[in-house]
Simulated assay, not measured.
Amino acid sequence: MISAVFNSSPWISPKPRAMKYIYLTARSEPERALIEAELLSFAGVRPDEKGVGISEVKTDISNAAYVKVGAEILAEAPDLDGLEAEVASKGIEAEGFAIRVERLTENLKLRSTEIAARLADAIRGRPNLSDPKVKLLAVLTDDRAYLGRIFSEYTKGWLRLSKKPYTTSSSLPHRLARLMINLSGVRPPAKLVDPCCGAGTILLEGADMGYEVTGYDINYKMCQASRKNLSYFGLKGEVIQADARFIEGEFDLLVTDLPYGRNMAADERLYDELISNFVNLSPVAVIVTARDISELFIKHGYRSVDVLPSPKSWFTRYIHVARL
């Protein structure tokens, strides 16, 4: 019998441990599926019920809608006492640091300032709370404690853009528009088209995030509103008056809010005509409607369609993420 113990061979180096990163998301039970999908699109993991996701993927989440912060994990332990000891034993150094504490447990009675002070005492270096050079993140859950170095935080750009001067009663919420763009997995600087742009909510979000945006609308007044909104924020984008059923072009990503009314049969015919053209415009489409129309995407050649419900006070929107 021949046996071999490869990990004991002196010429074989041990595999280096992969870095781990912690991400924190907003928490909202009605929007939980959307939040999970966004972190999955960024870091390949879903957050737990506390909004914590651990990944081996480091990615910029500054454009996120619901992923709040990402940090490189420096130390972890079962609890605060263990984390404090681990930080000290590793000799973690940071000069001019500040610690942001996220206490996601009811089991720990200490205040956030007390937690930060204990961890600060274990770090080699001086803190600087007014102008930190290094931002650290302490996360404490029921059964785990982490200390990480923050590398990315979301900018909440949708808050500024939601104050656009021209809007309509049916305009998408800006945060939802940003989320839809992120669910595509297509990152800037890609070419984004909104073939039913209305007052330009999706165009504004896309341009602010760094995409090259183009919008179409059959209504001249809506085209003007989109142009004025882009100009108001100093953002660039092209807006063209045209019927979305007949536009042409090549784009990396299509994101839109399809029009809907009270006549379901009329809507169905319109959606069928629109999607039959959308498939020619982009390999990835993220489209929100008032009902699930995934069968139309499959009918016109999309290979996969994920459908995510987005509850509103009096009805539910359905976000379709379709890929060729």
Rank of each mutant, 00 (worst) to 15 (best):
V307R: 15
V139I: 10
L230H: 01
D81Q: 14
E84K: 15
R291Y: 13
R187Y: 06
L110P: 05
G185Y: 09
S55F: 01
A177T: 02
I12N: 13
L204S: 01
E76M: 15
Y220D: 13
G237L: 00
L274W: 07
L140E: 08
Y166N: 14
G185N: 11
L83Q: 09
E212P: 00
E295F: 10
L129H: 11
L270W: 02
P16Y: 01
E95S: 13
E273Y: 07
G44V: 04
K133P: 08
A177W: 00
K156V: 01
C196A: 12
E212V: 03
H174Y: 08
R269W: 06
L161R: 15
K68W: 03
Q241E: 15
A77K: 13
A138N: 05
C223P: 03
S313V: 09
K20W: 01
S310Q: 10
G91D: 10
D194I: 00
A116I: 02
F297K: 15
V87T: 10
E114M: 10
Y66L: 02
T167V: 13
L179F: 05
A177F: 00
T201Q: 01
D217V: 04
L274E: 05
A290G: 11
I99A: 08
M19W: 11
I319Q: 00
E238N: 09
A116M: 04
S130K: 15
S294M: 10
S28H: 15
A177L: 02
L230G: 07
A71Q: 09
G148H: 04
A244L: 03
V305N: 13
T289K: 05
S294E: 13
K15E: 13
